[in-house]
Simulated scan of single mutants.
Amino acid sequence: MAGAPDEQGRGPLAGEQLGQQDVTCQVFPEQLAVRKPQQGFFPVLTNNQKCQLMLLKTLETNPYVKLLLDAMKHSGCAVNKERHFSCEDCNGNVSGGFDASACQIVLCQNNIRNQTHMNRVVTHELIHAFDHCRAHVDWFTSVRHLACSEVRAANLSGDCSLVNEIFRLHFGLKQHYQTCVRDRAILSILAVRNISKEVAQKAVDEVFESCFNDHEPFGRIPHNKTYARYSHKDFQNRDRYYSNI
């Protein structure tokens, strides 16, 4: 659910816009016509093949994603790669989105640039999927519900990491991290709701404190992969503790 300029799509959540206002998730855009693979002396991977390979690596190695997959399974929403992920061409500059009606994450194979980008998009979308699994989220009509999940996704996915903010040329302000989370949540809402910026800001402000401090399933803000690995170990130990009670 973070936002790009308004796109027509299949789901309630938003995606990532490339460029200076890089936003992580997007309502599913309309699919484009399938492109023919390039011909050459050496075999060239299609966008779909590249997407599938990057997705597999993300699911198997990224600590943020491994924790979210365990948490989804623990909550009764086990994720299956073939069922719950789809690599597709997308209109516009969006990178992916969570389709709540189909319980599926779409990855925009023509816009995801590299493995790091894939890691971040999958993490962001899985946070939305986790929220969908554990709570009765009204994606379609409640701006507050959407705002809460957008705040959590921006906070817990690494969207506002120092490295990403430096690349955006945003840094050095007091409470900059919180400002980044708030701004990206607002951009996301505006990408998928025909409302004024003032209404989006009001929704984010109303839920910000509680949703910013809701760190499930990480238990902390995972500022980097090391934090995410610690969070995953803590989650596994917590799971074992409760299973023995």
Rank of each mutant, 00 (worst) to 15 (best):
A2P: 01
A2T: 06
G3I: 05
Q17P: 00
L18N: 07
G19A: 12
G19C: 04
Q31G: 13
V34A: 15
R35I: 04
R35M: 04
P37I: 08
Q52Y: 05
L59N: 02
E60T: 11
L67R: 02
L68M: 04
A71H: 07
H74P: 00
G76M: 04
C77R: 03
V79N: 00
K81V: 13
E82P: 00
E82R: 10
S86Q: 14
C87V: 02
D89N: 14
C90V: 01
C90W: 01
S95K: 15
G96L: 03
G96Q: 09
G97F: 14
D99E: 12
D99F: 08
D99C: 04
A100M: 09
I105A: 03
Q109P: 00
N110M: 04
N111Y: 07
R120A: 06
V121N: 04
T123C: 05
D131S: 03
D131V: 00
D131P: 00
F140Q: 04
S142K: 00
H145W: 02
A147F: 03
L156P: 01
D159M: 05
S161L: 06
L162R: 12
N164T: 01
E165Y: 05
R168S: 11
L169N: 15
F171A: 09
L173F: 13
H176W: 12
Q178I: 02
T179S: 14
L187K: 13
A191D: 15
N194E: 15
V199P: 00
V199S: 09
A203M: 05
V204C: 02
V204K: 02
D205L: 06
E206T: 11
F212R: 08
E216P: 01
F218N: 02
P222V: 06
H223D: 11
T226F: 11
R229H: 06
S243P: 01
